[in-house]
């Protein structure tokens, strides 16, 4: 494991972040981001020996790993998750952007000789990249909507968890999610200029 971090520092930072210290929050983000990124590349996107396959599980694991002393209360945890959701978005988008660039640069796929039993090419995460740019626009209109989408889409947080983090009611989250979906659907449709793909 390459990333080094000081357990003391993190806990401290997180506490400050919880208190609304912007610099502390940024630092925490950076640290946690490094950790998540490593885990994601090992477990989600590369080869690893873990059985977990959900980003949610990954974030939980990161959370336990980072704060195994259990000093954080519930609100902090949701705060952390919400941050992770943003990170996960970034990590995955970077990953797929890179893959997509490789693909474009790599030219036509070469057939391998010899025995091979056909396999299907996985998608390039096209949708993810489209969603990322749409989310960027949405956050300029109403940042909360974009946060709700991140929490739900990237790490499948529950409505109550998001509500607790944002300090609003569950019902608001549900409405936010619906409004966000409306806007995103419209936006993605415009991006593709072809509604067929969305059906």
């Amino acid at each position: 494991m390459e990333t080094q971090y000081d357990q003391e520092t993190l806990t401290l930072l997180l506490k400050s972040a919880g208190d609304g210290d912007q610099t502390a929050s940024d630092k925490l983000f950076e640290l946690a981001y490094q950790e998540l990124k490593n885990m994601a590349h090992q477990k989600l996107l590369g080869y690893g020996n873990m059985k977990t396959m959900h980003t949610t599980a990954l974030v939980h694991e990161a959370y336990i790993k980072l704060f195994n002393h259990g000093k954080l209360n519930f609100e902090n945890r949701n705060h952390f998750f919400a941050l992770c959701a943003r990170m996960m978005r970034q990590i995955l988008v970077d990953h797929y952007r890179k893959k997509s660039a490789e693909k474009r640069g790599g030219g036509q796929h070469n057939e391998t000789l010899g025995t091979h039993h056909g396999a299907t090419e996985p998608s390039t995460g096209e949708e993810l990249l489209d969603l990322d740019s749409a989310l960027g626009k949405l956050s300029t209109l109403n940042d909360r909507l974009s946060t709700v989408v991140e929490c739900k889409f990237f790490i499948s947080m529950k409505d109550e968890e998001i509500a607790s983090y944002l300090g609003v009611t569950d019902r608001t989250i549900r409405n936010d999610w619906r409004k966000a979906k409306m806007w995103l659907s419209k936006e993605l449709m415009n991006q593709n200029k072809n509604p067929g793909i969305l059906e």
């Binding site: 980003t55 739900k152 889409f153």
Partner: peptide, 11 residues
């Protein structure tokens, strides 16, 4: 016309 993938999430 919400895309399915949006509903289902990143997983």
């Amino acid at each position: 016309k919400t895309p399915d993938f949006l509903e289902f999430g990143i997983n």
